[in-house]
């Protein structure tokens, strides 16, 4: 099981290193959106709340554009059948999730880093920001992986991902934006953040639970 999951992960990683489609899409999308935000808000005095909201809007939109390829790609190339025959469904999900986590890590790092540099935001609590991006990104990756398997065979699949993804992400976004704001505003440190982290953790746990229970039905033909 674990070996199969790692094999799926290695396969995706190798494919990605050859063409670099997903990473390039994510990074360029994030960069372009940060520039758009910068030009749109030039010299507008934004507070930490607005910066936190904008940063997460960028991350979530980039994710819905760039992370949905995991299963559509298999279906387009006709390799999903091979995968289905040789690997148990749980291992497929785990492997794809690992790869999506990697991509989300790159996305979160690039988006937050460039945003902070270009828009010029001070980060008094960098560790808090990093922890929020990590835990929020993990929840985002888990939900995106499950839903991109769901839409792999739907008409207009790519456009469907945000429609399915955004409503279920609301709890995650509320908590992540509040934590990011605390990290950008500073002053209170980590006090009062446990509610947000509990929500992020609960979201991740529930999504993974849902994936464990439902993925075989989504994946089996």
């Amino acid at each position: 099981m674990l070996r199969a999951a790692l094999a799926v992960f290695r396969k995706d990683l190798r494919q990605e290193l050859r063409r670099r489609v997903a990473v390039n899409t994510l990074v360029v999308f994030a960069l372009a959106t940060v520039l758009v935000v910068y030009f749109a808000t030039v010299r507008a005095p934004l507070d930490g709340r607005a910066h936190a909201a904008l940063l997460w809007v960028i991350v979530v939109f980039a994710a819905s554009v760039g992370l949905g390829r995991a299963f559509t790609q298999e279906v387009e190339q006709g390799t999903d059948l091979l995968l289905r025959q040789h690997v148990p469904p749980g291992a497929v999900y785990a492997g794809k999730l690992l790869f999506t986590l990697l991509l989300t890590g790159v996305l979160g790092g690039v988006a937050a880093g460039v945003y902070v540099l270009v828009v010029g935001v001070g980060v008094p609590e960098p560790l808090l920001l990093a922890a929020t991006l990590a835990l929020g990104g993990a929840g985002l990756a888990a939900a995106t992986t499950l839903l991109s398997a769901l839409i792999a065979r739907a008409q207009g699949g790519a456009a469907l991902l945000p429609v399915l993804l955004f409503p279920v992400l609301v709890p995650l976004l509320l908590a992540a934006v509040r934590l990011t704001r605390a990290a950008l505003d500073g002053g209170f440190g980590w006090t009062g953040t446990q509610d947000g982290f509990v929500t992020l953790g609960a979201f991740l746990g529930l999504v993974v639970l849902g994936a464990i229970l439902l993925f075989e039905y989504v994946w089996d033909e």
Partner: peptide
């Protein structure tokens, strides 16, 4: 919307049911 974008009845039923339960799991949150 998901139901509308799937033509084949069995696949539509399977995927829509999965999404329905996925949403139901997140409702308590």
């Amino acid at each position: 919307v998901l139901r509308g974008s799937l033509d084949e009845p069995v696949r539509r039923a399977r995927l829509a049911s999965a999404y329905n339960l996925f949403a139901a799991i997140l409702v308590p949150l």
